[in-house]
Write a protein that binds this DNA or RNA. Structure first.
Length: 504
RNA sequence: GGCGACGUAGCCAAGAGGCAAGGCAGGGGUCUGCAAAACCCCCACCGCCGGUUCGAAUCCGGCCGUCGCCUCCA
């Protein structure tokens, strides 16, 4: 994996294998998250899944920033407490992450619940000369940290020239940053040796890491934009406090962009696509496939066409898995592989190996995804032969074993990427209303289908009625039914073994 | 000004010295009552200019363009 700290790709050797301690920078809770955040969490979810698939035991901690200028400002403006705002956004965040199939971290600490540890570290830094108090604030003394700048690979001198740093007379050095700040009237605050105050932004992560994972961890992740100053300061204060190397591997995902200028998506610029909107328009698998379609260290641009393409790709993968499982469900295996089945088994084994190799190489998801598609083609090829009763496909019984293996491979590898690969059967109220209205309006269904019951069962009965129409060569009615269903979001496909509906 | 990344087919995106994975879209077939899905076939010489090399999209130099960090930010 590529380590931001060294700037190189390095073999992964955790401190205490098979245990891996991983901390991922979480969201500021002043508002809802957007698809850029989703990308970061999908990326680190993929990383965790791959590590676990590789035999590691991952302990995953992700913070919630629930006290900070923006939340405080919003609370004041809306007459709410910061807890109130934080709670609401946490609930929403979990809802959206669950929808995206992001595995939950083991712990989600909050800054406001970590005050004792924060104060302990700040006191320690003051005591050992790495920090100083000034008018109720406490600043980290960057000049006391000899390797300050090592993560972002920059030097104090370089940063001062042309830097947009507001000079604060109380600071010894312009780059000194606040560990603790005196509370202004009306701000939430806690007691401290320096008076009523609240923590600076960077210190919370150091404290939460140490509280929940220890003083030295394996992986620390976050977006590329948080390398400086956030993670740089985190290393500085943590290592100055413990005297030990803080994190072994620093991982950063490149940012998602949006717009004609392809600027990074960020709440400050307002160029945002909310996760809620994204989930309304695309399937979770499609979104994950899109977010993982470029390597995590390369920037990706949110474009409707590209997301749409990924969503269709997800459909293709689902289709291949379903084709395999349908044959397996309907056919008893003979235990004897037909020649094409032997080929599919080999393809599945090859896909698994190539997938692992790609993922082992700094989490190369684009290549790994390519392997999934290659397997889809092989699976469909065999299933297609069977559907057409082609003799070269061999007897159906001879394909069951291989199709089972292919399906298992799909589920296993798809699982590493967090893909569910399940066919949508979730119905909306709109769809339900449309289907019922259609049943009552369509003459060919009169008397054949009652407009009650669950939508999936209803659709099954509609297709049965349509099948009857086809049988009596009433293609006009059959086509009308298919067209009308298409208009309300249900596609119909006819196969030798029967028709199938799918929700789009 | 300092540090860094990127520029591959209509779109998205891997590859990183030996004649360009994959997806989406498009074209042509097969199958089908028709359609869809699926299968088969077709569709790039890698921003520009030099250099190194038997050989470069891959290495080096220059140029052009885009983006990121240096302030809040996943």
């Amino acid at each position: 994996m590529t380590n931001t700290l060294t700037g190189r790709k390095e073999p992964f050797e955790p401190i205490r294998p098979p245990e891996v301690r991983m901390y991922v920078c979480g969201v500021n809770l002043y508002g809802p998250a957007h698809v850029g955040h989703a990308m970061s969490y999908v990326v680190f979810d993929m990383i965790r899944r791959h590590l676990e698939w590789s035999g590691y035991r991952v302990r995953h901690v992700q913070n919630f920033t629930d006290v900070e200028d923006r939340i405080v400002a919003r609370a004041a403006a809306e007459g709410r407490t910061i807890q109130d705002i934080a709670d609401a956004n946490i609930a929403r965040f979990f809802r959206e992450m669950d929808a995206l199939n992001v595995t939950r971290a083991h712990v989600y600490p909050r800054a406001t619940h970590t005050i004792p540890k924060i104060l302990e570290i700040v006191k320690g830094l003051v005591d050992n000369g790495h920090a100083y108090a000034a008018d109720g604030d406490v600043y980290f003394r960057v000049t006391a940290d000899t390797d300050y700048g090592k993560l972002s690979h920059r030097h104090l001198e370089d940063m001062q020239a042309g830097a947009r740093i507001a000079v604060d007379k109380r600071k010894e050095h312009p780059m000194d940053f606040a560990l603790w700040t005196a509370a202004k009237p009306g701000e939430p605050s806690w007691d401290s040796p320096w008076g009523q105050g609240l923590p600076g932004w960077h210190i919370e992560c150091s404290a939460m890491v140490m509280d929940h994972l220890g003083e030295q961890i394996d992986i620390h992740g976050g977006g590329h934009d948080v390398i400086f100053p956030h993670h740089e300061n985190e290393i500085a204060q943590s290592e100055s406090y413990t005297g030990k190397p803080f994190v072994k591997y620093w991982l950063h995902n490149a940012l998602l962009r949006l717009g004609d200028q392809e600027e990074k998506m960020t709440r400050h610029l307002g160029n945002i696509v909310s996760i809620e909107d994204a989930l309304r328009r695309y399937t979770p698998d499609g979104l994950r496939l899109f977010l993982l379609s470029s390597h995590y260290r390369n920037p990706l641009t949110w474009k409707e066409d590209a997301v749409e393409a990924a969503d269709r790709g997800a459909e293709r993968l689902r289709g291949a898995l379903e084709a395999a499982e349908t044959v397996v469900r309907r056919t008893a295996g003979s235990g004897q592989d037909s020649p094409p089945a032997v080929a599919l088994r080999a393809a599945a084994a090859r896909a698994r190996e190539a997938f692992r190799e790609a993922m082992d190489d700094d989490f190369n998801t684009p290549t790994a995804i390519g392997e999934l598609f290659a397997l889809a083609t092989e699976t469909n090829r065999l299933a297609d032969g069977l559907a057409k009763q082609r003799s070269e496909a061999g007897p159906p019984e001879g394909a069951v074993g291989a199709l089972t293996a292919a399906a298992e491979t799909f589920r296993e590898l798809g699982g590493v990427l967090g893909l569910r690969l399940s066919t949508t059967t979730e119905t909306s109220e709109t769809l339900e209303r449309d289907v019922r209205r259609f049943v009552s309006e369509e003459p060919a269904l009169a008397g054949a289908v009652a407009a009650d019951g669950a939508v999936p069962a209803l659709l099954d009965r509609i297709l049965e009625a349509r099948q009857a129409a086809r049988a009596r060569k009433d293609f006009q009615a059959a086509d009308r039914i298919r067209d009308r269903l298409g208009e309300i979001g249900v596609s119909v496909e006819d196969y030798p073994a029967g028709s199938r509906w799918r929700l789009r």
